[in-house]
Design a protein around this nucleic acid. Structure first.
Lengths: 115, 115
DNA sequence: AAATCATACATAATTAGTTTATGCATATGA
DNA sequence: TCATATGCATAAACTAATTATGTATGATTT
């Protein structure tokens, strides 16, 4: 069982990670992809997702382009030029942080040669 | 650089982990131990720590005993009888969650034989 | 002697982030 | 026709953390 409380503070990094990997994505797609990648463990709610996306745009990290497929609106997000550097730094920071937590909680078997 | 935002939602599990490992600890000691174990990466602020401790007591997870060493007050916390089971479950949940995040962020080299 | 730091507790106001609930709109399948 | 899926969005309520204080003692530094 995934602990949703751990998710706090990770939504923006998750968005950045997915967009970094896929070039550009739209909101609904992000929720589906996260569900897929985590085998249902993580569910991003709209109430958390959309404000986070808007904030990333406001902060200049992401760009938005609105497109219409048939009669349906989609807002594609991608890393802004300036945002790409910030995003990479952020991801590294998050990686380190997760590593620290993993170690603190004894989740890194030393035999495995932790990174 | 550790991202404090990742810390959100992990304070109570961290407390539980340390007390599980050490039997009983007092607040200030927990802050010092966490700093030590994480080589300064994680700093628990009092404003987050004490309310969390009080809540764990209120929830019946922890017991408190007040002691005096010289003229200084210490409140030792330990797992309550009922809390031990809940604590173990919580720690497993957190372990899984960190694992899911690690995988999502690509922090688990498959060569290492993910868990 | 005074100031600063370490130990040790605590709370209150503010800020931030999430959940829950709701809303709009189109398309599809039961 | 009603539920489900797609796709966006926001607002109220809740939870949790930061920041800023506050009390008090002991040790160390200036």
């Amino acid at each position: 069982m995934f602990s949703q409380e751990i998710l706090k503070g990770t939504i923006k990094p998750i968005i950045i990670k997915l967009i970094s990997d896929n070039g550009r994505m739209y909101g609904y797609q992000i929720t589906q992809r996260v569900r897929e990648l985590t085998a249902g463990s993580i569910t991003l709610t709209e109430g958390a997702l959309y404000p986070a996306l808007h904030k990333l745009v406001a902060d200049g990290v992401l760009n938005v382009e609105t497109e219409w497929t048939g009669n349906r609106e989609r807002k594609y997000y991608s890393l802004s030029k300036g945002g790409a550097k910030a995003a990479a730094a952020k991801l590294e920071e998050v990686g380190e942080s997760i590593g620290v937590l993993a170690e603190l909680f004894g989740l890194r078997p030393p035999a495995c040669g932790g990174r």
